[in-house]
Design a protein around this nucleic acid. Structure first.
Lengths: 205, 205
DNA sequence: ACCTGAACACCGTTCAAGT
DNA sequence: ACCTGAACACCGTTCAAGT
């Protein structure tokens, strides 16, 4: 069994698929302008279906959110796997980190769901979180083997940095410190100089 | 005029003060166990007053939150001002940063209000945010003058780091990366070595 | 000056009835 | 297999009436 939680599925019947897609489209628009707390009734209304239809396709708000971001997170991880062997290990990691931060903050409130799903199995978004852990972890390990990133970093640390930066981005204001800046700082903080890497080598890390 | 926004005020009449205090106590308990989205009706109920009484004292949810954390943030800034000249500049900054992270994450959801209040005048929590900016900024500047902290850091950057770490703490899980770790990383990232400081000196920073 | 609670509006969620 | 919308529960917020 690949996943214990029944994720939202595109129906087979034509009318069902039409509604499913319409709801998803309306949800994306609503989440984009009002965040993940947007009214589900409004979403159903603007999709032209009854509220019961929305619940029929998406059992919970989180299931709807999951369906709305699934493709994006999927492609984020897919593109990372593709470039995994092309770019320099540290550049690849940094580039992916930047993309991931953006993906996790497309909707205001999304990163909160991601954070609480990450270590809670049985939650719709958990699968996506695990996938991000895995691909992030792979990029991380590769950079660490090359001695370009601190050896004491774990995939969990990476995920914490990721979500924190995404949250900062979500709450960005023209006058605020700037999440872009924070991302730079975090990337710099996880890299290490050649000397430090050699020290690690001596210590046998 | 010190503040354009009318913050919640302790009433002068005895019965009013009793209710005000009771609501505040109930609110703190509710926020602690359920976060800042706790039901206001429940709070009023467990304080033994009608819902109208709660609204009479605290016009908005944010006003209630503000009143609940005011003392804590006040004392946080006061203690920083006191130690401002005792400890080493960088240690003082780091210590305050740690305390601040804790204070901003006592209630789940609080840091979200802080982040959105920081640059929005006319919001109940704005005053507290400005105060944190100021005291944080003073500690920062002192550490920078001593060449112990990166010169390009602004108080806004510090606030962004602060709230991000507080958010991470708010969402901490036994299995997660650990916000404590993130705090350490951020503190380390803002410090700079003596060599770098000298370089800055040469450049005239 | 302060308290009360009914009244209104709104939203989430379920489910019996329909096609 | 899928859709509908009434029904229920709950919460936020206001305000006329009271002390």
């Amino acid at each position: 069994m690949p996943s214990a939680v029944p994720l939202a599925q595109r129906p087979k019947r034509a009318d069902g698929r039409r509604n499913y897609d319409g709801i998803l489209q309306a949800a994306r628009a609503a989440f984009e302008s009002q965040g993940t707390e947007a009214s589900l009734e409004d979403i159903a209304r603007s999709a032209g279906v009854a509220i019961g239809t929305l619940y029929g396709h998406f059992a919970t708000r989180e299931a709807l959110i999951e369906a709305a971001v699934r493709e994006g997170l999927e492609s984020l991880c897919a593109s990372a796997a593709a470039q995994e062997n092309s770019a320099e290990p540290d550049v690849a990691l940094a580039a992916w980190f930047r993309q991931a931060v953006i993906h996790c903050s497309i909707y205001r409130g999304l990163v909160g769901f991601l954070a609480s799903s990450s270590y809670h199995e049985g939650t719709p978004l958990h699968h996506s979180c695990v996938k991000m852990h895995d691909t992030g972890g792979r990029l991380l390990e590769r950079a660490q083997r090359a001695g370009l990133v601190r050896a004491d970093l774990t995939p969990e640390h990476l995920f914490t940095m990721l979500t924190s930066a995404a949250w900062a981005r979500e709450n960005d204001t023209p006058r605020s410190g700037g999440s872009e800046w924070l991302v730079d700082l975090l990337i710099e903080a996880m890299s290490q100089s050649a000397d430090e890497a050699q020290l690690d080598g001596v210590r046998g890390t």
